[in-house]
Each structure stands twice: as structure tokens, then as C-alpha cells.
Amino acid sequence: MSDDIYKEIILDHYRNPRNKGKLTDPDISAQDNNPVCGDRISIDITLKDNVVSDIKFDGEGCAISQSSASILTDMLMDKTVDELSKFTKDELLEELGTPSLGPARIKCALLSLKVLKIGTYQYLGTELPEDPEN
């Protein structure tokens, strides 16, 4: 692992995060942190007819966790709740352009996806799988 995980898209979203902030009265809202490094992400989603009409993330942490959250939120606009619950890590990692992050950093990259899953399952009232981000 080295600096080649810092692809242009990651650095771009790290320097200029999209959809950063909070929503008032979101339909879906969740947050989680990575206990090892203290990365923290929250995601708020507003739905309209079961489709994402607004989405924001907030948090702090390393470039990988924060840019991944920014990129993820960009990808989720206009998706249905069903699509949110089925969104896969491969889709996110492909967009990040770094399929081989290595075990030390993959958790940073997938934290936002985990938060999305926690919120979505909570909204649906279904039980969260053991490794929701996988």
C-alpha cells in the first residue's frame, strides 16, 4: 500500500467535499465511527416517494473515509430505498478507483457505506446483517 491509493478522484473529493452537512428532519439518519482511528461519519437522507431527494454527510477523519463518504453520497441521489439497501461495496470501490486498498485502509473507505446500511435497515425495520458493508 502506498500513495497510489490517493487517486485524483479521492483527492478531489477530500479537498472539495460534496453534500457535506446535515439535513433537518431526515427520513434516514445514522452515524458510526471507526474505533481504531476515530474516523466518524454521519449520513442524513430525505426521501420523496421512496426515492432519495436530498442527502448529506458529515464527519471527520482521514482523506479516504471522508472522500469515500462524499463520493458515495454523490452516487445515491435519485436511488430508491430498495437500491440503497442493495448497494454493494464493489460499486463504491470501483468509483473510488482503488480496488486494492489493503486491509488497513479498506475500513476507512467502507465506513460511509456501513453508515448508509445502518440507516437504511433501521428505516426499513429489518435486522442489520453482521458485516453490513460487505
Binding site: 500513495d3 482511528c37 476515530g38 474516523d39 477523519g61 482521514c62
Partner: peptide, 28 residues
């Protein structure tokens, strides 16, 4: 710069440093 990013980029130069709370969260 986040310690994890610092450590990852240093790793690319084959430099091993530690990033994190060093098992001392109250001190952090």
C-alpha cells in the same frame, strides 16, 4: 493531515510509523 493519511503515504516510501490513538484513548 490525518495521521492515517500521513502513515499511508510514508508507507509508500517504505517508512513505518504508527498512526492512531496508541492504545491511550484517554490521553488523546
Amino acid at each position: 493531515f490525518h495521521p492515517h493519511d500521513i502513515a499511508s503515504i510514508l508507507d509508500g516510501e517504505s517508512i513505518a510509523v504508527r498512526a492512531g490513538h496508541h492504545c491511550a484513548q484517554p490521553l488523546m
